[in-house]
């Protein structure tokens, strides 16, 4: 049995009233949801919020899930949209409250990554990622961290493959330059 049918069975089981199946799905995908949100938002608290939001959407909207696609694509779409919405919301909030840019080192709750050396590398990389424009950051994260093909990214973001490739080209070039500077 493959992952797709496995997930579909769990969804059907949950929809017929078995909450335990939802717990299995949540445990299975919570980490991936967190990492996508964290890489997009650059902040633990925001990423944690997104995880909770996505689980809530999954719980209330799984009855609308179309079984023709993989469950993770559906979850990923929700995560990507919620993350982008939060970025926009935070930008608006920043404009209306006239608050200066927050310091990049406001990571908080750093014990979530236990390996100290990896944590340092991660924080350095996160800083570089945060300096990319949102569209470039999104395609960079989806390509390099989540290994998604352009077709799937296009399906999730609604952008053309050409536009995605152009954004990725600029993103990886900028990341190269940023890593050279360090």
């Amino acid at each position: 049995m493959n992952v797709k049918t496995d997930d579909h069975l769990l969804v059907r089981d949950f929809l017929s009233g078995n909450e335990q199946s939802f717990n299995i799905l949540a445990r299975k995908y919570q980490e991936r949801i967190y990492w996508h949100a964290r890489r997009m938002l650059g902040d633990h608290d925001d990423a944690h919020d997104i995880v909770q939001q996505v689980l809530l959407v999954m719980h209330s909207k799984l009855n609308t899930f179309n079984f023709s696609s993989a469950l993770y694509t559906w979850i990923y779409k929700i995560t990507a949209t919620r993350s982008l919405n939060l970025i926009k919301k935070k930008k608006l909030k920043k404009i209306f409250t006239f608050s200066p840019d927050e310091a990049v080192d406001s990571y908080g709750y750093e014990n979530i990554i236990e390996d100290i050396e990896a944590k340092e590398r991660f924080l350095r990389m996160e800083k570089h990622l945060n300096s990319l424009p949102i569209k470039q950051r999104q395609v960079f994260v989806m390509r390099n961290y989540d290994d998604l093909p352009y077709e799937e990214i296009s399906n999730i973001t609604g952008k053309s493959i050409g536009a995605l490739k152009a954004n990725y080209f600029h993103a990886i070039r900028k990341m190269k330059e940023l890593m050279e500077k360090k």
């Binding site: 980490e31 967190y34 990554i113 390099n144 961290y145």
Partner: peptide, 15 residues
């Protein structure tokens, strides 16, 4: 190096 660095961080595990 960009690819390698992102590849290494891909496997990062949460507490």
């Amino acid at each position: 190096r960009v690819k390698e660095e992102t590849g290494n961080l891909k496997e990062l595990k949460l507490n």
